[in-house]
Amino acid sequence: MVAPAIGLDIGSSAVRAVQVTAGRRGPAVLERVGQVLLPRGAVREGEIADPEPVAQAVSTLWSRYAFKGSKVALGVGNQQVVVRKMDLPFMPEDELAQSLEFQVQDSIPIPVDQAILDFNTLENYESAQGERFNRVLVVAAHRQMVDSILGVVRGAKLEPTGLDLDAFAMLRSLVPEGFPGEGGEMLLDIGASVTNMVVHHDGVPHFVRILLMGGDSITSAVVDDLGVEYDEAEDLKAAVGMSEVSGLGREHDAARVITERALRFIDEIQGSLDYYRAQPDAIPVRRMVVCGGGSQLPNLRQRLAETLHMPVEHGHPMQSLKIGNVGLEAEQLVQAEPYLAVAVGLALGGMA
């Protein structure tokens, strides 16, 4: 019997897990989905600030949703992670892996003895002078930050089996292998305090950026400006979003604050896209796909489309999965799907 693969996403507002099993002759089967909210401040900007409640939330997640097995694939995405596109002298991938720290030590802002390194090969090419190169995306993560994640997971009596970049997990779930490509796309996973951005072409990543911005900054602005409690600010954000609310009153004031803060976020996305497009090897980006809790802000998708002059669609991380007996109604799965891109991608990666 094939063992299930479980992806565990430790976000800033919640821990989420997805369990999948390889289909015998078809797609992978979704068997379990679960989420447990975290106390505010336990994870800050994607980094674990208070390990005990996070470990407790993970333990609760396992017991409440009856996940089978203790082996989990993990993701990481915060400012302690650096992603660089680099051209390195050609060598087989196993040799490149062994020599990576020497190849990149002068190109990343983390001492290599304090970093965990990995790479994703984009292409091999030959220069006009006949020299061969590997074009790679190099990922460097501070070892201390990674150790804090591993400590929490082990504290919940689970066994980490792999560590992936959240952005790559999102790409894996939103652009499954074998699905027809749409050419150059930008993917955005808008979380509570971290937004992962990937530009890809038919599933091959060309640009990755991690932004310390998300839905929580909008909620906090409403709290500060209107003097309301956090939960009420969340309700106002979900109700009015970037709408034009006429007259006076709390909803009008909330819409103004939400729109102002969300436009700053859109400007940051525009700046990142402009930066990428200025690169000599940039590919045309013709479409954007969004997911994550922050993507549910009313009218955000429309404003992004107007500003960036491209179609902006909602992503569907469960599109390649067969839905098993997960214990949720179809409508509940639809509501949960925007939050699951990283967890689904980690689980799919854990099957490899």
Rank of each mutant, 00 (worst) to 15 (best):
E306W: 01
I258W: 07
R143M: 09
R301K: 12
G345S: 12
F207E: 04
H201L: 11
V139F: 02
I110R: 04
V112S: 11
L61A: 08
V240S: 04
M91N: 02
G293C: 07
A5V: 01
H201K: 13
A22P: 00
V342D: 10
G191W: 02
D225S: 13
G23C: 03
T307D: 05
S13M: 04
K85W: 03
L37G: 11
D235C: 00
K68M: 11
V194I: 15
G11R: 09
G178W: 09
E268T: 11
D224L: 09
R44K: 15
G214Y: 02
E31G: 11
A336K: 04
L346H: 09
R264T: 11
L304R: 01
N299E: 12
R25V: 02
L212W: 00
M91G: 02
R277Y: 05
D147H: 06
R264H: 13
Q279A: 14
A255G: 07
I266Q: 03
R32F: 02
A278W: 01
M351V: 10
V245H: 01
E234D: 01
A5F: 03
V36E: 15
D118G: 15
R256E: 14
F207Y: 15
I10K: 05
E232N: 10
L122Q: 14
D164N: 14
V334K: 13
G155V: 04
P27L: 00
V312L: 11
T307H: 02
E126G: 05
E337T: 15
V139L: 03
Y339C: 08
I6N: 05
V245M: 02
E31Y: 08
D281I: 01
I323Y: 00
Q103A: 14
G315N: 06
V175L: 09
G215N: 02
T21R: 15
S320V: 13
V175N: 07
V136N: 10
E182S: 11
E229Y: 00
I323S: 04
D225A: 14
I110F: 03
V36N: 08
V54I: 10
A5Q: 06
T259A: 12
E52F: 03
V139I: 13
V18G: 08
E306H: 05
A278G: 09
A156K: 11
T195C: 09
P280M: 08
R25L: 10
Q302H: 09
V36T: 12
